[in-house]
Design a protein around this nucleic acid. Structure first.
Lengths: 231, 231
DNA sequence: CAGTGGTCTAGACCACGGT
DNA sequence: CCGTGGTCTAGACCACTGT
């Protein structure tokens, strides 16, 4: 009944020892070589198991110092940020999309600052409303740097959302995300069909390709939206 | 000037090829063995580089089918969920803590449902306010399953927050998180020193050890709070 | 300086799953 | 069936860092 030793076997064993306090928080655990010998596998296997536990925040590893059980395990939550259509469909609803506005205009200061562009740079502005089963779901307010995204000027954003177009056509990139709550102003209340002052969940996202700013977007969700994940 | 080949070298090269459309979305990429030969390294090195790219959502890998560039790269955002004291201190403020309530009571239905406990199970209820530089920062409303957490009945939660006590004394193995916005009711407005109806950012979290429910907590943040991360 | 984790290599076997 | 990724091994060298 002894199953073959894989790195997951080792990982589960390590987790068990942490959970059952055989290895106590803050305490050093045996070296990779010792564990390999004890558990009857190669050091590389132990390494992979422990490396991932360290990445997940359960262990802290340093060269020479060794490995210890994390004292304050930082819980990490990973969110998938799907394109909105998928999000809607994942909730079992039919996705709808309405392009509200598309223009070129000097971007307001908060946007240019976040994208580190000169003040009042002309950017492409796209506003669109996402619907779930016909009801307002999420307002997408976006500013795109056309210099960094050739082709978007010509793209038909009435059929495919800018969100989706960018995911499909723009290079990989990094960026930042902020989650927060904000009250509905008159415009939001009208578009999202809620009362003025209603508490709305919102996401600000900026996207880059290397040092080139691509887009800044604010997604404002209709009341009741919850962003869910597992730890 | 040729630097030693590490898995990160390979990973960057792969990212470059994806970014510059040498490998197009949906397209198959060369096999591990071919890449290893081309890039002058062992297959295991290529494997690690590509495996992590697949985990990050850039590639899709299947046995026999091979590896292809993801068509809809799912953006993933990872949040560190620190203990609140650290969060406050990380913002350059002094953390304060006030225990508001501590009692034992039958938990309301939403809580017992989420924790999959019988209706009206008696749980330990802890309410506490976290302060940043003396101003209300976050209200912690928590229900703890005392059967699963021996020792908490005797713990002094006026000095250390329940949040921190649990992190230190229980091994949390899993759970769920939900982020949302909600309006301040009368109690929240009073405690967080904001107006009734103000838009507040809130987090519902449930925690488990294996199949045993440990705790359900709602963290409600004072207006203006933003949860920030990088992609 | 010396111990520990980080990584690479070359070879091997296996499980999955298209064909 | 058999190609592809998934993983293990044994040995090796290296980088970092505490002492």
């Amino acid at each position: 009944m002894t199953q073959p030793v894989t790195w997951q076997t080792i990982q589960n064993e390590a987790l068990r020892r942490i959970r059952e306090r055989e290895w106590k928080p803050g305490e050093m655990i045996p070296h990779e070589a010792d564990l390999a010998a004890e558990l009857g596998c190669a050091r590389a296997t132990v390494n992979r198991a422990l490396r991932e536990l360290a990445a997940a925040g359960f262990l802290e590893r340093r060269r020479k110092a060794g490995t210890r059980v994390a004292l304050n395990p930082v819980r990490k939550a990973t969110f998938d940020i799907p394109i909105i259509r998928r999000d809607v469909e994942g909730r079992g609803a039919v996705h709808g999309y309405r392009l509200l506005e598309r223009s070129s205009a000097p971007a307001p200061a908060p946007v240019t600052t976040k994208l580190r562009l000169p003040a009042r740079t002309r950017l492409l502005r796209v506003s669109a409303l996402h619907l779930a089963d016909g009801a307002p779901f999420c307002l997408e307010d976006r500013w795109v740097n056309p210099a960094a995204v050739p082709g978007i000027e010509a793209a038909d954003l009435s059929a495919v959302s800018a969100n989706e177009w960018l995911v499909r056509n723009v290079t990989l990139s990094g960026g930042g995300i902020e989650f927060f709550a904000m009250p509905a102003d008159a415009r939001l209340a009208a578009v999202l069909a809620c009362e003025e002052g209603a508490a709305l969940f919102a996401i600000d996202r900026t996207t880059w390709t290397g040092a080139t700013p691509i887009t800044a977007v604010r997604l404002t969700y209709a009341p009741g939206y919850r962003m869910v994940t597992a730890i």
